[in-house]
């Protein structure tokens, strides 16, 4: 650091020169914080997204570095939200990358007192078998003498936090299976 820059870095001088007479703005910035860069500055890409919490639909910018989400911020271009996020939306980095998220399939046997970890593929097979069995076990061709062609054995609940495309497949699959007890948070 040369003498000239040493003098120029003198906070009192910067207070006066940078029209920050009370030293509450940029003049108070230390050398260390001056060299800090936002996490988003080094991101490899920015992916456009939408906040997953309430139904306002705030725009989100998802910052990705080396294949990992490193930060999520409000999208200033959104006419809905103009870059703002609420406490929940601002915490969505923790939602998506936090330690409380589970990454393994867990299975609880009948009457067991603990979980066990099972492979995804095995779980999918077991669930498919159970759907087929319960569907058949509670199948009705008729109710009170009228054709109903349905099963009362299977129910689903959920959908308001899901994508439209996901809800579309859920309704399509379970309707084709003959299930009618298909519901979501619209009532809750």
């Amino acid at each position: 650091m040369g003498v000239r820059s040493w003098i120029e870095e003198w906070p009192v001088l910067r207070q006066v020169a940078d029209s920050d007479p009370l030293g509450r703005g940029a003049a108070a910035k230390s050398g260390a914080s001056k060299h800090l860069a936002p996490r988003v500055a080094t991101a490899d890409k920015v992916v456009k997204s939408i906040c997953p919490y309430c139904a306002v639909g705030c725009g989100q910018n998802v910052y990705v570095k080396e294949g990992k989400v490193v930060q999520i911020e409000g999208d200033p271009q959104s006419p809905v939200s103009r870059g703002r996020l609420c406490p929940k939306g601002s915490a969505s980095l923790q939602l998506t990358t936090g330690p409380a998220r589970r990454h393994q399939v867990m299975y609880r046997r009948p009457h067991a007192t603990e979980w066990e970890v099972i492979p995804l593929e095995q779980a999918m097979d077991m669930i498919a078998d159970r759907v087929i069995k319960s569907r058949r076990g509670r199948w009705q061709w008729e109710a009170n003498g009228t054709r109903v062609r349905r099963t009362m054995g299977i129910a689903t609940l959920g959908g308001a936090t899901l994508d439209n495309e996901e809800n579309y497949l859920i309704k399509k699959l379970f309707t084709a299976l003959g299930a009618i007890q298909i519901e979501n948070q619209a009532r809750v």
Partner: peptide, 21 residues
């Protein structure tokens, strides 16, 4: 002012017993 990201969508493309899309 609905409270889930796609609660409107899940009524339009319903996961509801009495509706089809």
């Amino acid at each position: 002012l609905r409270g889930h990201a796609s609660i409107q969508g899940s009524t339009d493309i319903p996961t509801l017993f009495n509706l089809l899309p």
